[in-house]
Structure formats: structure tokens, C-alpha cells
Design a protein around this nucleic acid. Structure first.
Length: 478
RNA sequence: GGAGAGGUGGCAGAGUCCGGUUUAAUGCGGCGGUCUUGAAAACCGUUGAUGGGAAACCAUCCGGGGGUUCGAAUCCCUCCCUCUCCGCCA
């Protein structure tokens, strides 16, 4: 694999100045049925700021940003940033004035030479100017790099509907669906059930790979495959998504675009010696599909879904969820990603949650939806709904999906724009993403909610065509 | 992995040998207009991004980075990517 990014400063990677407009020309290749026109959307919704965390927005609204960082429990020295921004603008003025003079002088020299005159005096006069510009450019680049480092470190501003709080205890339960199933016996946890039924094997996984990996056999391998296929079928069939299969290795540019880098490098698996990483979620490749592109406005909203393996280092989660399938280094997930017009993104967020919920409803699994508070909100998100499924074995609700509106935060970093027909200016898209759903955790939920007293698992109605059985019974493994 | 050819605006495609009338020709497409009952054709005009500036305007951008020069799409170094052929391979 090539190391494409070597020798390239990361700022150039994040803000490449090469808009690729080929999507415009490709649009006839996308047939109508794949577009999401069925998603009725109200326009002109309030509460959306198009210029959020834009350098100019930040300059004019630094107090809002300062407050939002405080609400998240974060820390960024914005006073230093303000000084840098001021210095940057001063340097730009200075160096551009120099360049203007140089351009004028060069033109004059060219004129003299063309007429066969002697320009050596003028050339000698310009000798020092070139060096001065070089020095100024160097200083500007240094300041500019610092400014961009700050910008990359500043999280998105939480939407005003997001509760202010510090930890997950401050999240607000927004709505619920279904009811907790009742058991005439003490329900077991999924890893007990899975191991007793011969489907889950953590010992051999540890031998092969280490902790936080699993090997599945027979019905468990098949159930995982069935769940993923079922989810894709619903999302592409009923909910209108366009299925995509992406690479699971991406470069650092993509990870800067969606916000995993530069701040969260320790959560990622990096390929040794290369600027290449295993994806922590399909959000990264799906969102970056349109990086540095301008999308035809009449193609919006776009909805993609993909089933991929996801890889997370889980650094800092030692001792947490050490048993079972809940917290793995590798897990399957069906991801949903939307590209929308700015005024549509909050309606799209509601739609996105509903689409994720539809899977749990069809599986008959009880869940609640919580709105994350400012302290629990992800770096790139302005508002996030977590769907938490009920796990009777654990006697807890556990996150199975996280649906977020990123506004133009990722679009700015990745360069994702759209343009209306006849309009001169392209605008930044809004991007959203959510799990629809995490496959491993969904298997956990099925096992715990559909367990019988004899330890067998009743197969949910909708999965029976995929599995070919009504009950999961013990198997002997080799 | 080896050899060769390439990377220029929404697209196609000049310019690169021999640096300065290139503020990137020309064509197509897009947008606006004339004409027309309407359309097509023809003709006329227009046509990107980013940053600085209240604005006029200015600066930067020919795959990325660096260098030479008063001045670089053009010369030098380096990296990346694409294509063709060969090798290997599911």
C-alpha cells in the first residue's frame, strides 16, 4: 500500500484546495430509485447555524464557542487563539502587499525586456523583495498552522435543545418503545447463554487475537450474518438507503475529515509504518465518499448504508464490559449516513433515529431513546440520540445505536458542498450518521430477550426466514 | 515488485522542449439574453475555489511539498496518484 500522505502537511490534507466537481457530471449515473425523495422534509427550520466553527463565525461568536466548550467539560485557550488570528491577518496584509508590488515590478521588467531594454537595475532592486516575501510567508505559515491546530481541536457547538450536563447520568430520556419482557426465571446474560449453546468462544479468540475478540460457531455465526442482512434489507428496502460497500482501511485525511483525528488517535488501530488506519465506524468512509466534491442540490438528501467491521482500540476502557460481546476490538455494524441541505438536517436527524428504531421494533426489542447531554456529546456532533436496548440478563439499558447531526462540522473539514442549479455559490452540506444497528450488541439483545427457561433461544419472527429455524438449540463444537 | 506513459478549470484539450503579450488558448457543458407561437438552431454576453478587505480591489491555486529566479503551469529535487505492459496472487 502506498503512503500517499507522506511529506504532506496535515493541514493541506484537511483543507485541500482542489474541489473536484466530477460528481456533477456523474449525477445521471445515479438512477432515481436510489434517491431519497420519499423523505418528506420541512424546510425553513430554525436553530441551524450554517457558519458554525467557520473561522469567521468563530471570530464573531467566540463567547458562544467558549461557553459550548465549557458545557462539554473541555478546555481550549481561546485567548491565545484570538491573538493568533489577529497576528495572522496582519501578516496576510503585509505579505500580500509585498507580493502585489513584486508582481507589478515583474511586469515592468518583462515589458522592458520585450522591448529589448536593459532591466538589470530593476532586477537588482527586486533582489531583496523576494527574500522578504519568503520570510513573511514562513512566518505566516507558522501562525496559520497554529490557527488550524486550534480549529481542529474545537468541538462542534451543541444545539440549544441539548441538555447541559457533565456525565451520562445527565442525559435525558426522550421516549421509549415496548416493554420489558417478563421472565418466570432469572434471565441469564448473553455470554452465558452463548457459551452454553456452543456458539460463542472467547478462549480461542484470545488465543488467536487477544482479549475483546470473539469466535462464533454455527447458529451464532449465522445469527450475526442474519442480523446484518436483515438490517441491510430493511434499510435499503423500506427506509430508502443506498447500499455501499467500502474499504475498512482509510488514510489519515479521511479521519481528519470526520473528526477522529487529530484528537482521538489513541482510539484507532493504525497500520504499522503507514498513514493508514482501520475504520472505527463506516461513518468515516461513507461520509468521506463526497469529500472535496460539490453535489447537485437536487440529489439531496442522500442516504447511504453500509455493513462493515469496525475496529476500536478501546484504550482507557480497561475493566469495563470485559465479559461477552458488548465491547469488542472488532465488531460488525450497519451504518447510516445522510447528506442534507442545512435547513433539513434536524428533520433528517429525527428520520434517522426512526430508521434505526425500526430494526428494534421489528425484532420486538424494548428500548429507550436518550438525548445526550453536553458532557456526553461526541466531538463532531451538535445533537445525538442514543438508542438503548433493554438487556434483561444485565438488567440494564445498553447503547445499540447513536444518531448524530454534525451540521456542517464534518462538511467543512472534508470539503463537502452542494450547489443549487443556477446558483453561483456552493454551500456546505450538513452530514448525519447513526448506527442501524450495531450487529454484535443486537445479537446480545436477541439472546437475552428471547431466552427460554431451558436455555434455548426463541428466534424472532422476522429472523426466521434468514435462519431457517424457530428455536436456537445447543450445538456441539469441535 | 519491474518497465513505460501520464496528472492543466464542470468535461474535453492546447501550452511545458526555448520561464515574462497565458490576467491558462480553443471546444463542449452550464447560466443570462436576442430571435421564435413555443422549442431547436444561430448569434451575443457570462462562467471556479480559498483567503484578506467596509468596499474598490488584492493575493493564492495548473496532483502534493520543497528549490532555482526579479518573475515558474513551464526549469530542478522529492513524494503521491492514474493508465499500459510484465511478474505475483484471491
Amino acid at each position: 500500500m502506498g503512503v500517499r500522505e507522506e511529506g504532506k502537511h496535515f493541514l493541506q490534507k484537511v483543507f485541500p484546495f482542489l474541489p473536484l466537481f466530477f460528481l456533477l457530471s456523474l449525477s445521471p449515473l445515479f438512477p432515481r430509485p436510489f434517491r431519497l425523495h420519499a423523505w418528506g422534509v420541512d424546510t425553513n427550520r430554525e436553530g441551524v447555524r450554517g457558519d458554525m466553527l467557520d473561522i469567521k463565525f468563530l471570530r464573531e461568536n467566540i463567547d458562544i464557542v467558549r461557553q459550548s466548550i465549557a458545557n462539554r467539560g473541555g478546555k481550549v485557550d481561546l485567548a491565545e487563539y484570538e491573538a493568533l488570528d489577529k497576528e495572522r491577518r496582519g501578516l496576510i496584509l503585509e505579505v500580500e502587499t509585498c507580493k502585489m508590488r513584486r508582481n507589478e515590478a515583474s511586469k515592468a521588467i518583462a515589458q522592458v525586456k520585450r522591448e529589448g531594454g536593459d532591466a538589470s537595475a530593476a532586477i537588482a532592486e527586486q533582489a531583496a523583495v523576494g527574500q522578504a516575501i519568503k520570510d513573511l510567508d514562513e512566518r505566516l505559515k507558522a501562525v496559520d498552522d497554529r490557527v488550524q491546530e486550534f480549529l481542529l481541536d474545537i468541538p462542534n457547538v451543541p444545539h440549544e435543545s441539548v441538555p447541559v450536563g457533565r456525565t451520562e447520568d445527565d442525559n435525558a430520556v426522550s421516549w421509549m418503545w415496548g416493554e420489558k419482557p417478563e421472565f418466570s426465571f432469572a434471565p441469564k446474560e448473553h455470554y452465558e447463554l452463548g457459551q452454553e449453546l456452543g456458539g460463542l468462544d472467547f478462549e480461542r479468540a484470545a488465543k488467536l487475537s487477544g482479549s475483546r475478540f470473539a469466535v462464533t460457531y454455527g447458529w451464532a455465526a449465522k445469527l450475526e450474518r442474519a442480523l446484518a442482512t436483515f438490517m441491510l434489507d430493511v434499510q435499503t428496502g423500506e427506509n430508502g438507503y443506498f447500499e455501499v460497500a467500502t474499504p475498512v482501511i482509510v488514510n489519515s485525511t479521511a479521519l481528519y475529515g470526520t473528526g477522529q483525528l487529530p484528537k482521538f488517535a489513541e482510539d484507532l488501530f493504525k497500520i504499522d509504518g503507514q498513514e493508514a488506519y482501520l475504520i472505527p465506524t463506516a461513518e468515516v468512509p461513507l461520509t468521506n465518499l463526497h469529500a472535496d466534491e460539490t453535489i447537485d442540490a437536487d440529489r439531496l438528501p442522500i442516504g447511504y448504508c453500509a455493513h462493515t467491521q469496525c475496529f476500536r482500540s478501546e484504550a482507557g476502557s480497561y475493566g469495563k464490559d470485559t465479559k461477552g460481546l458488548i465491547r469488542m476490538h472488532q465488531f460488525g455494524k450497519v451504518e447510516l449516513v445522510h447528506f442534507t441541505r442545512p435547513e433539513d438536517s434536524f428533520d433528517q436527524l429525527e428520520k434517522l433515529v426512526k430508521n434505526a428504531e425500526s430494526i428494534l421494533q421489528k425484532l420486538g426489542l424494548h428500548y429507550r431513546v436518550v438525548t445526550l447531554c453536553t458532557g456526553d456529546l461526541g466531538f463532531s456532533s451538535t445533537k445525538t440520540y442514543d438508542i438503548e436496548v433493554w438487556l434483561p440478563g444485565q438488567d440494564k439499558y445498553r447503547e445499540i445505536s447513536s444518531c448524530s447531526n454534525m451540521l456542517d462540522f464534518q462538511a467543512r473539514r472534508a470539503g463537502i458542498r452542494f450547489k443549487d442549479k443556477g446558483q453561483k455559490k456552493a454551500q456546505l452540506c450538513h452530514t448525519l450518521n447513526g448506527s442501524g444497528l450495531a450487529v454484535g450488541r443486537c445479537m446480545v439483545a436477541v439472546l437475552e430477550n428471547y431466552q427460554r427457561e431451558d436455555g434455548c433461544i426463541e428466534v424472532p419472527e422476522v429472523l426466521r426466514p434468514y435462519l431457517g429455524v424457530e428455536v436456537i438449540e445447543p450445538i456441539a463444537r469441535f
